[in-house]
Design a protein around this nucleic acid. Structure first.
Length: 254
DNA sequence: ATGCCGGGTCCTACCCGA
């Protein structure tokens, strides 16, 4: 089975890109981030064989699932977040016998100290969700835009200031906690070394100079990790006309 | 190391992204 994640930076700007990629790669399940539209106006993909489920809001954030297999929605927000939190960042479904979670983790660079605190609290809630699923011995994957460079090998030298929220020690510590809970970083499990960027800034020639970041990840529960067959970002999408600043990450499970 | 790009919106100057 093929599962994938892609921050498309506006689905209205990237509708044709997504259609081309679905046609070329044929994933079973594709989680999208930064759809940047309200739920009701998310475009249909039934004509290319994919059913859509969107969790949107006006202007910012937003996640969605495109699936060519049957699925059941289990959560449209991260369990444990305050009820007044309306940011569209989480979608959890059951499909093909697994639980698939798509996330758009807060960036943490805007809003000063409160912005970083929101990111850290969100990561704490995500760890609690992972713990609950691990306790039930459920087969699950958390995929999406984590907005975390886990180590210094996960960003080009000088690509970010040292105090950026993507490399903040407290943020990295929380990412490591997810691994220590028992989750497997799918790309690093198969490719322990190498510059496997998933994002290149639109500015300063980041793409032609290959000054990227690895911030889009797939974390697998123990039984899913045993089935891991392939895991890579799809670099060629960054070279498309009018691309997203992120590329898809594709995971294959036996 | 910011706002050089590119998306959004109270439509156009400003917010956000990473």
């Amino acid at each position: 089975m093929k599962i994938a994640t892609w921050n498309v930076n506006s689905i209205r700007q990237r509708d044709a890109h997504v259609r081309r990629w679905l046609d070329r790669v044929q994933p079973d399940l594709l989680m999208l981030q930064e759809i940047k539209c309200e739920t009701a106006v998310f475009p249909g993909f039934l004509d290319v064989g994919y059913r859509a489920e969107a969790v949107g809001q006006k202007a910012y954030n937003g996640v969605a699932l495109l699936s060519r297999v049957p699925f059941e929605v289990t959560h449209r927000a991260l369990p444990g977040l305050p009820a007044e939190d309306a940011q569209a960042r989480y979608l959890e479904v059951r499909a093909l016998g697994i639980t698939l979670i798509g996330i758009y983790l807060p960036n943490g660079n805007s809003g000063g100290a409160a912005g970083l605190a929101y990111k850290l609290a969100w990561m704490d809630r995500l760890a609690a969700r992972a713990a609950a699923l691990l306790e039930r011995d459920e087969a699950f994957a958390i995929i999406g835009d984590f907005n975390v460079c886990p180590t210094d090998a996960d960003l080009a030298a000088g690509a970010l200031p040292a105090d950026d929220a993507l490399v903040h020690p407290a943020v990295r510590a929380r990412f490591r906690l997810l691994l220590w809970q028992g989750l497997t970083d799918a790309v690093r499990a198969l490719h322990p070394v190498g510059q496997l960027w998933t994002f290149w800034d639109y500015q300063a020639g980041a793409w032609p100079r290959d000054q990227g970041l690895r911030i889009d990840h797939a974390l697998l529960s123990p039984t899913l990790a045993e089935r891991l067959a392939a895991a890579l970002p799809d670099r060629r999408e960054r070279g498309a006309e009018q691309p997203s600043d992120h590329v898809p990450v594709l995971i294959e499970l036996r």
